[in-house]
Amino acid sequence: MDLTNFFNYGSLLLIAPCLLPVMVGSIGVNYGQIADNLPPPEDVVPLVKSIGATQVKLYDADPRVLGAFANTGIEFMVGLGNEYLDKMRDPAKAQAWVKQNVQSHLPATKITSIFVGNEVLTLNDSSLSDNLLPAMQSVHAALVNLGLDKQVTVTTTHSLAILQTSYPPSAGSFRVDLIDRLCQTLGFHQKTGSPFLINAYPYFAYKANPTQIPLDFVLFQPNQGVTDPETNLHYDNMLYAQIDAVYSALASLGYSKLPVHISETGWPSKGDEDEAGATPENAKKYNGNLIKLMSGKTGTPMRPDSDLNIYIFALFNENLKPGPTSERNYGLFKPDGTAAYSLGIRGINVVAGGSSGNAVTTPSYPTGSSTDYLSISSATKRYGHVVLMIAPLLLLKTLV
Rank of each mutant, 00 (worst) to 15 (best):
Leu394Glu: 10
Leu253Phe: 00
Leu374Lys: 15
Gly25Trp: 10
Thr153Trp: 04
Glu75Val: 12
Gly10Gln: 02
Ala35Pro: 05
Gln100Ser: 14
Leu85Ala: 03
Phe174Asn: 07
Trp97Asn: 05
Phe220Trp: 01
Tyr255Ser: 08
Gly32Trp: 02
Phe7Tyr: 14
Lys381Gln: 14
Leu197Ile: 12
Leu215Phe: 05
Lys257Asn: 14
Val351Trp: 09
Leu20Cys: 12
Leu258Glu: 06
Asp149His: 15
Ile348Gly: 06
Tyr255Val: 02
Tyr167Val: 15
Thr4Arg: 05
Ala96Pro: 05
Phe313Gly: 07
Ile291Leu: 11
Asp244Tyr: 00
Phe188Gln: 00
Ser170Gln: 04
Ala249Ser: 12
Met136His: 07
Pro46Trp: 02
Val78Ile: 15
Gly193Glu: 06
Thr300Pro: 05
Phe196Ala: 03
Ser159Leu: 11
Asn8Ser: 15
Arg346Tyr: 08
Pro91Ile: 09
Ile390Gly: 01
Asn358Ile: 01
Val226Phe: 13
Ser11Val: 13
Pro301Met: 06
Ala200Trp: 02
Gly172Ile: 02
Val360Trp: 07
Asp180Val: 15
Thr156Cys: 13
Asn317Arg: 03
Gly28Phe: 09
Pro214Leu: 14
Asp228Ile: 09
Thr362Ala: 09
Gly277Asn: 01
Lys321Tyr: 06
Leu123Ile: 02
Asp2Thr: 04
Gln95Asp: 00
Gly344Leu: 09
Thr362Cys: 04
Leu146Trp: 09
Gln103Thr: 09
Ala251Glu: 10
Arg346Thr: 13
Ala283His: 00
Leu20Glu: 11
Leu395Val: 15
Arg175Val: 01
Arg382Ser: 12
Ala241Lys: 08
Asp336Asn: 15
Cys18Arg: 14
Ala359Phe: 00
Glu327Val: 15
Gln33Trp: 10
Lys257Met: 11
Leu80Glu: 04
Leu215Ala: 15
Gly28Lys: 08
Ser138Glu: 04
Asp216Glu: 13
Gly296Ala: 13
Leu106Cys: 06
Ala251Val: 04
Leu80Val: 15
His140Tyr: 11
Glu264Cys: 03
Asn30Lys: 11
Arg181Cys: 06
Pro41Phe: 02
Ala278Tyr: 00
Leu395Glu: 12
Phe196His: 05
Tyr311Arg: 11
Asp305Tyr: 12
Lys334Pro: 01
Leu80Ala: 11
Leu320Asp: 10
Leu332Met: 11
Leu290Ala: 13
Val246Arg: 10
